[in-house]
């Protein structure tokens, strides 16, 4: 009588060997012609289509650069006292000197 582990090993081996044998696939008569039709439409390899081949990777790289720029400008804005909302408010109130928005002297 075999142990449970041995049975599992045998089953695993059996399934692995069945996977290796696979099944033969035959393709339809127009299969090759369909590929060639698509290829002819693509033009010569290395043209414009290749630029988008690794779209995902490009987007991630670009997002890292964009995040870096955002961080840089945020730090710049914080260290250089840039307050766009205040500037906009001053413009809207037609008060370039900032008399209205300045805190009152006590």
């Amino acid at each position: 009588m075999r142990s449970r582990k041995e049975k599992l090993d045998i089953l695993e081996k059996r399934l692995v060997s069945s996977w290796k044998t696979g099944e033969a696939v035959s393709v339809g008569s127009g299969w090759q012609a369909d590929i060639m039709r698509e290829i002819r439409l693509s033009g010569i390899p290395g043209g414009k289509m290749d630029i988008f081949e690794d779209q995902g990777r490009l987007i991630w790289r670009f997002s890292m650069v964009a995040a870096g720029f955002t961080l840089f400008f945020l730090l710049y804005a914080l260290t250089n006292d840039i307050m766009p909302y205040r500037d906009l408010a001053l413009l809207f109130l037609d008060d370039p000197a900032g008399f209205i928005l300045s805190p009152p002297f006590v």
């Binding site: 099944e23 696939v25 339809g28 590929i35 693509s42 390899p45 290749d50």
Partner: peptide
């Protein structure tokens, strides 16, 4: 076809092999 038919449902193997050749062509450089 041998590679894809092991990995993909058989009814889609033909289409997948098609895609493999098109991808290979586009990356041929």
């Amino acid at each position: 076809l041998g590679i894809v038919s092991k990995r993909i449902p058989l009814d889609q193997a033909e289409e997948m092999a098609h895609e493999v050749f098109v991808r290979a062509y586009r990356s041929l450089q």
